[in-house]
């Protein structure tokens, strides 16, 4: 029941963020959206995703949006809204295809799902002796998927460097 209210909350926030003409209002509403989304992740039991959503979605990206707002005009240009048939049909078709694709997925938390039967039992059996850590998640991330984690870290490091370089060059020009 509370989950339904939360999901309805998300829909209202998304629509309100699009409808608002003042961009700062849209940014505030988007941050509220991310805060609610973090609660949805918590309700699903995905604690680490919730921390990431709260830190990145609500925190950093909102501050970045505000930093952009300091450089641009605060109001959206008034445009005449008219109904465009072809994009509407394309969007509806893609949405229905995605919903149709989810019909084959296993039930939420089902023990027969592929993610619970394929490699996870082996990790749980051999994980401690093969990786030497008591924490399965750390063992899988740092040992079994070590190269994957290395690649992700490289990507994040590069992105951080790019942000630092962009901000520095901006400051010098002003």
């Amino acid at each position: 029941m509370a989950d339904l209210v939360l999901l309805f909350f998300l829909i209202v926030c998304a629509v309100a963020a699009v409808v608002q003409k003042e961009l700062l209002n849209s940014v505030i509403i988007l941050s509220i959206y991310s805060l609610i989304m973090a609660v949805v992740w918590v309700r699903l039991g995905a604690v680490d995703v919730a921390i990431t959503e709260a830190a990145v979605g609500a925190g950093i990206s909102t501050v970045l949006f505000i930093a952009v707002l300091t450089r641009v005009k605060r109001r959206e240009e008034l445009t005449r809204i008219r109904l465009q048939i072809l994009p509407l049909i394309v969007v509806l078709a893609v949405g229905l295809t995605l919903i149709y694709g989810t019909l084959d997925m296993p039930d939420f938390g089902s023990p027969a799902a592929v993610t619970n039967t394929h490699v996870v039992p082996r990790y749980l059996e051999k994980g401690v002796e093969e990786t030497g850590t008591d924490n399965y998640v750390a063992g899988i991330l740092a040992s079994y998927r070590g190269y994957d984690t290395l690649g992700e870290t490289t990507v994040i490091f590069t992105a951080g460097l790019c942000v630092v370089l962009l901000l520095r060059s901006n400051k010098k020009r002003l």
Binding site: L35, A38, V42, V47, A50, I51, A54, A55, A58, G59
Partner: peptide
Amino acid sequence: DIALVYVLIN
């Protein structure tokens, strides 16, 4: 722990 992160970010 998440609640603390959440408070700080808010």
